[in-house]
Design a protein around this nucleic acid. Structure first.
Length: 438
RNA sequence: GGGCCCGUGGUGUAGCUGGCCUAACACGCCUCCCUGUCACGGAGGAGAUCGCCGGUUCGAAUCCGGUCGGGCCCGCCA
């Protein structure tokens, strides 16, 4: 007799069958007991009448691993319309310690409870609501992979252990590498550009490490990025169109495939532009609108303030019917050496993709001309001969077409898709300035 | 790094203008009762020196200082 899963009980009516899983809940009512057994598909209700069988559970806690052999019975009063009767219970792994938190009802995600949420993550993730979050995350990654692969992108993996950070680098984690200093990659930026010279179109899903001491609801020291890079693009807009189109495709897919889970997690209704094009506004336009609307002058800010990001997203949802909006044409003061400058000499050809209040992606066109790139490095105090850059530059010296792409924050994307308050809630085992375990 | 806030059984809270606190309530746990529960119900019980250190006071969960831990916002953010 092979093991069946919780959602198959209803297909076994009248037959004796067996399930295996974790004791999820017990309700003892004298001569009758109901227990719920959890497996990878969900819960099965088991009705136990035999006192000796009920007695087997004495002293055993939620989490006990059980095998239950019983008769599948159609029962409208049971969740799912079917349940197991006259069971024989076998305790596969007894659990006698009381769980540190209760998992049979939704776990609090209030900010003041997040520490408990993460401290008890090992057990808490068994909660059905928590499971939904990470199933949605898995679906999102699957949807990105499928879409990009269908569009002729090759998935790559680049090293996360890098040499010492060159001058001009930002905060990185340093570690000992057989006696020399190494750093953890805070972006696959240079490698994915190199790989454009090989496959034209590449993407990578992987961890990045940031050592900035940020303590906010949108930062972690380790996060999951989707990096996309595509060669032979005609212009900036082509890159924006592709990344915007990919994001909309994945969102639609998620809202279709995970409709029930998103609903039960109270995810916001999805609003995407009817013409299939993510709306675009310049940084200056947003500063002006925001300053006018809130009487707070931001026209001297180079980037959008966090409050502006929230504000323009609300504006976009209400006025433009879109949960996604591009903020484009950043001032030169934000320029990174590998980004292409606009011909007007005032802005950078880079846009931020905002989603429900936060930046989820930066989408620039790259500088692909070797001489210009070397000059831009020098302008920013970077030595092109540094080992950290010399190999990168080879890709340009030996032919790299005009290209662009994005770094796309998966954690934030999942967070905002579901409507969670903190990016860490969308991460299995978050890492931040105060947390390195579990 | 700056500002503001929080810290009470396993979990979530009340108490916190000092003494009725010998610390209360809900969930969970243990014992007993209960044959259709699904936040089951009922009776009883165990479990906290109130983050830690020091101070003020006749007296501190409560006031003060320090310290540790946590949260939120800002800054930072290839």
């Amino acid at each position: 007799m092979t093991r069946i899963l919780s959602d198959q009980v209803k297909d076994q009516i009248g037959k004796t069958t067996h399930i295996e899983g974790w004791l999820h809940k017990k309700r003892l009512m004298g001569g009758l007991a109901f227990i719920n057994v959890r497996d990878r598909r969900g819960l099965t209700q088991v009705v136990v009448q035999d006192k000796d069988e009920v007695e087997k559970l004495r002293g055993l806690q939620i989490g006990t691993v059980l095998k239950v052999t019983g008769k599948a019975v159609e029962e409208p009063r049971a969740p799912g319309g079917a349940e197991l009767h006259d069971p024989e219970l076998t305790v596969l792994v007894p659990v006698t310690d009381e769980p540190p938190i209760e998992i049979d009802k939704p776990i609090s995600h209030k900010p003041e409870h997040l520490d408990t949420l993460f401290e008890q993550r090992v057990i808490g993730l068994r909660n059905l609501q928590e499971q939904k979050i990470f199933k949605i995350r898995a679906r999102a990654l699957q949807a990105f992979r499928n879409y990009l692969t269908e569009n002729d992108f090759v998935e790559i993996q680049t090293p996360k252990l890098l040499g010492a950070a060159p001058e001009g680098g930002t905060e990185v984690f340093k570690l000992d590498y057989f006696g020399q200093e190494a750093t953890l990659a805070q972006s696959p930026q240079l490698y994915k550009q190199i790989m454009v010279g090989v496959y034209e179109r590449v993407f990578e899903i992987g961890s990045v490490f940031r050592a900035e001491p940020s303590a906010t609801t949108r930062h972690m020291s380790e996060s999951m990025m989707l990096d996309i890079e595509m060669g032979f693009v005609n212009d900036y807009d082509e890159v924006l169109d592709f990344v915007g189109g990919t994001t909309m495709h994945v969102l639609k897919e998620l809202y279709r495939v995970c409709a029930d889970d998103l609903k039960s997690l109270n995810a916001p209704e999805l609003k995407l532009p009817e013409d299939g094009k993510v709306p675009r506004m310049t940084v200056d336009e947003i500063h002006e609108l925001y300053t006018k609307a809130t009487k707070t002058d931001t026209t001297k800010e180079k980037d959008l303030t966090p409050d502006e990001e929230k504000w323009i997203c609300e504006y976009s949802r209400k006025k433009l019917g879109s949960d996604l909006i591009y903020v484009r044409d950043f001032p030169l003061s934000t320029h990174k050496f590998y980004q292409k400058k606009n011909d007007d000499g005032k802005t950078v050809l880079s846009a931020d993709l905002l989603f429900r209040g936060v930046e989820i992606s930066t989408v620039p066109l790259r500088e692909s001309n070797y001489e210009t790139l070397v000059q831009q490095m020098k302008d920013q105090g970077i030595d092109p001969a540094d080992p950290g850059f010399k190999y990168y530059l080879q890709a340009f010296k030996y032919g790299l077409p005009q290209h662009g792409g994005c770094g796309f924050g998966i954690d934030r994307f999942v967070q905002k898709t579901i409507g969670l308050n903190n990016v860490k809630e969308a991460t299995l085992f978050p890492r931040d300035i105060n947390r390195l375990t579990p």
